[in-house]
């Protein structure tokens, strides 16, 4: 079957910055591709080219069977785009935002209203639909933004960092909505700075850095490649630090590290290590304030793949991984 998104040798330069240095991306129909990379890796440039907002300097791209450079209008009829910054019109009500997009997509006034009502319902915004978008919380804006990109029932949806800046609960809401979208058969390309997010949503993950693909694999394959999960324990009493370190050394695959004062972390092979650790903490009567099993952070992924941490640090970091424990 032909791919829903197919990019070959994509390059783009802005002045002296080589944003994309020859990227290949392939997404099968109804599949989800996670594009993982730090700020400045080229994720947004790639999405903007795929969504016909930018022209590539070189390379070919087809989306939903049409070339983005020669047939941009055909592509635009079949795609939805949710930008990095929720692109809703703040001075319009929620429902007005959706109706306007519907009308621009060629729906009649009544059809646009019906479709808007349907999407507000689906995204749990019915009660807020009559309010100005500027009164919405961050999570509501994202949902409205996502709803706006789905009005035309696109077969391909681009989500550029759909959860950046959201707290974990709101992020889970957005994830659930993306999963619903995928169940309905939509092809999704999402960019993210969090392996956890790509792991939760994507069938395959492409890691990019400095405008180049540095890895492409299934989430499982990628996790195997970068060393699986990390177990983190913070004892309630600093005097237990040595005992905790010794305990983690025995369950981990490498020597424990100290990412923060009184926080011990160690890479582990699987979830069994968590069960074992809990049992032994209990047996040794060590109280802890934090105990979490998490996927490697982007920095760790990069370190495993390239031997260096990303050049541009992930500046936002609003979702503190592992904080949920």
């Amino acid at each position: 079957m032909t791919a829903a998104i197919e990019a070959r040798g994509l390059t783009k330069r802005f002045g002296t910055t080589q944003a994309l240095a020859g990227i290949d991306l392939t997404v099968g129909p109804g599949r989800v591709l996670g594009v993982l990379g730090p700020n400045g890796a080229g994720k947004t440039s790639a999405v903007r080219i795929l969504a016909t907002l930018l022209k590539p300097d070189a390379g070919t791209v087809t989306v939903a069977g049409f070339d983005v450079v020669t047939h941009p209008v055909d592509v635009r009829r079949r795609i939805g785009l949710t930008g990095q910054y929720a692109s809703v019109d703040e001075d319009l009500r929620g429902v007005e935002n959706l109706v306007m997009i519907g009308r621009l997509l060629g729906l009649s006034r009544s059809d646009a209203k019906a479709r808007a009502a349907e999407l507000l319902e689906e995204f749990e915004l019915t009660d807020a639909g009559g309010r100005l978008a500027k009164t919405y919380s961050g999570g509501m804006r994202r949902r409205l933004d996502l709803a706006a990109s789905l009005i035309g029932r696109p077969s391909v949806v681009f989500l550029d960092e759909p959860t950046t800046g959201l707290d974990p609960a709101k992020r889970d809401d957005v994830w659930e909505m993306i999963r619903t979208l995928v169940r309905q058969g939509t092809t999704v390309l999402l960019t993210t700075q969090y392996l956890e997010e790509a792991d939760a949503l994507a069938n395959e993950i492409t890691v990019i850095d400095h405008g180049l693909v540095i890895a492409h694999d299934t989430p499982e394959g990628l996790k195997r490649q970068v060393g699986g999960q990390t177990l983190e324990v913070r004892p309630a009493d600093d005097r237990d630090l040595d005992r905790v370190t010794a305990l983690l050394a025995s369950v981990g695959t490498r020597a424990p590290e100290f990412p923060a004062p009184s926080l011990v972390s160690v890479p582990v092979a699987g979830a069994d290590a968590l069960t074992a650790t809990v049992a032994r903490l209990h047996a040794e009567n060590i109280a802890v304030t934090e105990l979490s099993l998490r996927l490697p952070s982007l920095d760790e992924v990069f370190y495993s793949l390239t031997g260096h941490t990303p050049a541009v640090p992930s500046a936002t970091g609003l979702v503190t991984e592992g904080a949920a424990s």
Binding site: R48, A51, T52, L53, V73, R76, R77, I79, G80, L81, G83, Q84, Y85, A86, S87, V88, D89, E90, I101, L104, L105, G106, A148, S149
Partner: peptide
């Protein structure tokens, strides 16, 4: 504010 990105991604005339 990003709204124009959405307009650019819609099948409407660029000048609209």
């Amino acid at each position: 504010n990003g709204v124009f990105d959405r307009f650019r991604s819609l099948p409407i005339a660029r000048s609209a």
